[in-house]
Write a protein that binds this DNA or RNA. Structure first.
Lengths: 334, 334
DNA sequence: TTGAAAGCGCTAACAC
DNA sequence: GTGTTAGCGCTTTCAA
């Protein structure tokens, strides 16, 4: 007999319906019977078939989490940490995370098939198709990160506010001329960082398109020409590239540049002395995204949420000072 | 009407059974009817309810992929790349990847509930419970990476062979005294690397327990005392830590060390001149793991597979020479 | 080749 | 409080 519910019913001399009530906790049932059922199940290591439950209850207890499957992908830790945050959060409520490609086809398939109850898009795929599809699909979903499309529930760090606070804090400690190096102009996160920086340090030069070591060094040299000696890096990879290029003396004219990074990372942490950086918590973002769809599944109205960050600023002795906060929260998820 | 199969049947004036046959491709059906059904579905953007299919066919079309949810996790890219490899491979055959915590409870839950048809364990959790449970659970599963437990189907790089080949290649080009720095002694991958290195460079000193910059520098100094001037690093983080420590002159006695890494990474790629390294392909491992369980689901007998690697060795001009191969394959998955 | 009907393992009314 | 029964949306005999 493959139906565990029938097996328990038979063994305990009760009906399948009663066993079901013990499991779901719904409907009236004597505390004693319920305990008998649960004990029996625990003792015999039995659990109900999830798929049958799903079909009957019209819920899949599964949430899709998109990840880019593009092989030359950057920001691995952002995606994995976020997913792990979501997994942990989902597990508490009995949900699971189905990891899928962020391609429109993959998203449409799992949604169309009813394989998931909600979708977390871990970053705008920029295909002009996925997000609109989700909007009209009528199931809960949230986007992690920024987007140009309006009317979408989002979970994100406030990159702009973080960069503003960080830039301000650094410029209070260091004197000199500030400049910023960023990656692709199309990247929405970079744009937000640019705005935060420019608000804190108006009229400071910004160099774009630092995509590899060569272009990063070129950007730095450009800034140096303009008299910059405090370089803010839009990303940790830019920062690492710059640091090693400097140490190897590959930046001309040779000059002592002070570095600060808009994004912390393990690679950066390995450097000594410590480079000041903003510490984002992708895991918290993933967890918040999961909470957001869970709430929508519970009937609540969708709300954006903004996740806090930390400023990691080393003092002279190499010790760390940590500060910073999400001062601009619409709603801060616990 | 929530049943798409009934809707199509009604619209086309045929029975639900026929529609089902068109979808599954099983059973006798006229090519014309089949086309009519498929066309209608495509035109109206309809797809069958996966959960009902699953219940009826007793298959979940889902494969669990475990990831450590331990917050202070290392090797993010290994886990994410592997998962992405699995997602891509699974998608082709209509399967999906359910990402779950590698805790015994999580694994038991999804397996017990019948929520997945197979399990990929992305690294031995070392809990002495999960793997044995899976062995007796009777559903297909594979382990990525080494384990002390026997009789388990595995997919992995041949770390030992790779390190042997790499060490040999480096020592043919560079003259000097070699030494190796490794992380935790409990780590099975590190142990395999140790063996490969020692086979290629017998009697060379090996320093263990390089877990952060301090211990790494200490390990390096230890080796220097022994006359080592070619340092092999068991991991890219060790390599980066050493590189920056050297550049900052934090290793005593100050000496010119040449570095080589048993594991390549983006952080390492950013360095210039290039540090020779072994390039592993976690994505291929994940894909192979997925293929492995898929084959078992297809009734084939489980087989271990070993995935190839590349040696990345820079010449004087900074150009790259790539070589290396999986010379010890039991079976190399495409 | 197609239709009808009996499940798949569970939930949820509805009676008792 | 518990048993009975009718689905959930699909697959799969078994007839026709």
């Amino acid at each position: 007999m493959s139906s565990m519910i029938a097996e328990v019913a038979l063994a305990l001399g009760i009906s399948k319906g009663t066993v079901s009530r013990a499991i779901t906790g719904k409907g009236r049932i004597a505390a004693a019977t319920k305990a008998r059922v649960l004990d029996y199940m625990a003792e015999h290591d039995l659990s109900p078939n999830a798929i049958a439950q799903n079909l009957s209850s019209r819920k899949s207890m599964t949430i899709a989490y998109t990840v880019p499957t593009d092989p030359k992908m950057r920001h691995l830790s952002f995606y994995l940490s976020g997913m792990i945050g979501a997994i942990d959060r989902a597990m508490i409520t009995g949900y699971d995370i189905l990891s899928i490609s962020n391609s429109p086809d993959a998203v449409r398939r799992v949604v169309g098939q009813g394989k998931v109850d909600a979708v977390i898009v871990s970053r705008d795929p920029g295909d002009e198709v996925t997000l609109p599809y989700l909007q009209q699909a009528g199931l809960p979903f949230v986007l992690i990160g920024p987007t140009r499309i309006s009317g979408i529930t989002r979970v994100d760090h406030d990159h702009q506010a973080a960069c503003l606070e960080f830039t301000t804090a650094i410029l209070q400690r260091w004197t000199g001329k500030a400049g910023l190096i960023l990656g692709s102009r199309d990247d929405l996160v970079s744009q937000a960082r640019d705005e935060g920086f420019t608000a804190a340090a108006p009229d400071s030069p910004v160099a774009w398109n630092a995509l590899d070591e060569t272009s990063t060094v070129a950007a730095a040299e450009q800034l140096v020409e303009l008299g910059v000696d405090i370089v803010f890096c839009g990303d940790d990879s830019i920062c690492v590239a710059l640091e090693t290029a400097m140490m190897a003396g590959r930046i001309h004219p040779a000059i002592e540049l002070r570095l600060a990074s808009f994004h912390n990372s393990p690679a950066l942490e390995a450097l000594n002395p410590r480079i000041p950086a903003i510490q984002f918590d992708s895991s918290a973002v993933g967890a918040a995204a999961c909470s957001a769809v869970l709430k929508q599944l519970g009937g609540e109205h969708p709300v954006d949420s903004i996740i806090g960050y930390q400023l990691v600023i080393g003092d002279r002795d190499g010790h760390l000072a940590r500060g910073g906060q999400a001062t601009y929260s619409i709603s801060v998820d616990q």
